[in-house]
Simulated scan of single mutants.
Amino acid sequence: MTDRKDEIAGNLAAVEERIGAACAAAGRPREEVTLIVVTKTYPAADVRILSELGVRHVAENRDQDAAPKAAECSDLPLAWHFVGQLQTNKVRSVVGYADVVQSVDRSRLVTTLSREAVRAGREVGCLIQVALDAGESARGERGGVAPGGIAELADLVAGSPGLRMDGLMTVAPLTGEYAGRERAAFERMMDLSTDLRRTHPAATMVSAGMSADLEQAVAAGATHVRVGTAVLGVRPRLG
C-alpha cells in the first residue's frame, strides 16, 4: 500500500506541476483550475489514497463501478462527478452519490435527473456536454449536444427543481474540424461559455482537458481538468 501511495503521490505532484506551469504561462492564478481525478476502473483503496493526498474531486463514468465505490468512500470529503454517457435507468442510482453530472446532453435526461434529485432531497450540479464535432443539431458520437442546442438545454436545467446549471463540459474531438486542434476546440468552448453566462451568470464551470491535453485546456481558460492516467497510471484492463 505504501508503494502505491508513493506512486500516486509522485504522479499527482507531477500533474500539479503541469497545471501550475500551464496557469503561469496563461497568466492565471493556480486556484482558478480544479483538478478532478478520474478514478474509473481503479479500486476504492486508490480513492482513499487520493483523499489522503488532498484530492477533493473524483470522477467516474460507469454507475455499476461508481455506486459501490462511492458507498465505500462515503466517509471521505469528496465531490463525485459523473462524466460518462448516462442512461435514464441509471439516474436514480447516480443521483444518490454524484454531486455533479457532467454529461447532460438531452431533455429526457434533464427531466429524469430533476425527478430523482427531488425524490432524494438533493441538489445536483449539471454541466451540458458539448459535442464540438456534431452538426448544429445532431448529437455527437460520444454523447454531447451540438453547440446550437446548448441554450435550450441550459434553460431546461435552470428551470428544473433539484438541478443547478453549473456550466459546460467537452472532450477534444477526434474527428471533424477540431481533430488534432485541441487548443482551438477549447477556445471555442470558452466562447460558448461566454454566451451561456449571458443568460446563466452562475454557470461558470468549463470542464475540458485530460491527461494528454490539459495544458491546452488551461491556456484556453478551462476551470476544471479531468485527469486519470497521468495520476493513477495505465488503467488495468477490464475483464
Rank of each mutant, 00 (worst) to 15 (best):
R122G: 05
S103T: 08
A98V: 02
P147T: 05
P147Y: 02
A98E: 04
Q102K: 00
G144A: 06
T112M: 11
N89L: 00
G148K: 01
R108Y: 00
G96H: 10
A151W: 01
A117N: 02
S114K: 13
G125E: 11
T112R: 15
V110Y: 09
D105P: 06
A134P: 08
E136T: 03
G96K: 07
G135N: 10
A120K: 12
E141P: 00
A117H: 04
A138L: 03
G140P: 01
V130C: 04
V118F: 09
V118Q: 14
V101Q: 07
G140K: 00
G125H: 05
G121F: 10
R119K: 15
G125N: 09
V104L: 10
S103H: 03
R139M: 10
G143I: 05
Y97T: 03
A120G: 12
V124I: 15
A138G: 11
V101N: 06
G135W: 03
G143W: 02
I150L: 06
R142N: 07
R122P: 07
E136S: 11
V100H: 12
E123K: 14
E123S: 15
I150K: 09
S114V: 13
V130W: 01
V104N: 11
T112S: 09
T88S: 15
G135S: 15
G149E: 09
G148D: 05
E136V: 01
L113Q: 10
R115Y: 12
I128A: 04
V110E: 10
S137F: 05
V95I: 08
A146F: 04
R139S: 13
T112F: 00
R139P: 00
V130A: 04
A138F: 00
Q102M: 01
Q87C: 12
V101R: 06
V101A: 08
Q102F: 01
T88H: 03
S103V: 02
D105C: 06
Q87K: 13
V124H: 07
V100R: 13
K90A: 09
R92A: 15
R106A: 04
T88W: 03
G121R: 10
K90D: 06
E141D: 12
G96Q: 09
T111C: 00
Q87V: 12
T111M: 03
Q102N: 07
V110M: 11
L132R: 11
A134N: 07
D133F: 00
R92S: 14
A131I: 06
G148L: 07
G125Y: 04
L127A: 08
G135T: 14
A117V: 05
A146D: 01
A146M: 04
T112Y: 00
E136P: 14
G148R: 01
R92N: 13
E123W: 02
R122Q: 07
G144W: 05
S93M: 13
V94I: 08
V104D: 09
S114W: 13
A98D: 10
R139N: 12
G125I: 06
Q129W: 02
A117T: 01
Y97V: 04
E123A: 14
R122F: 08
E136R: 11
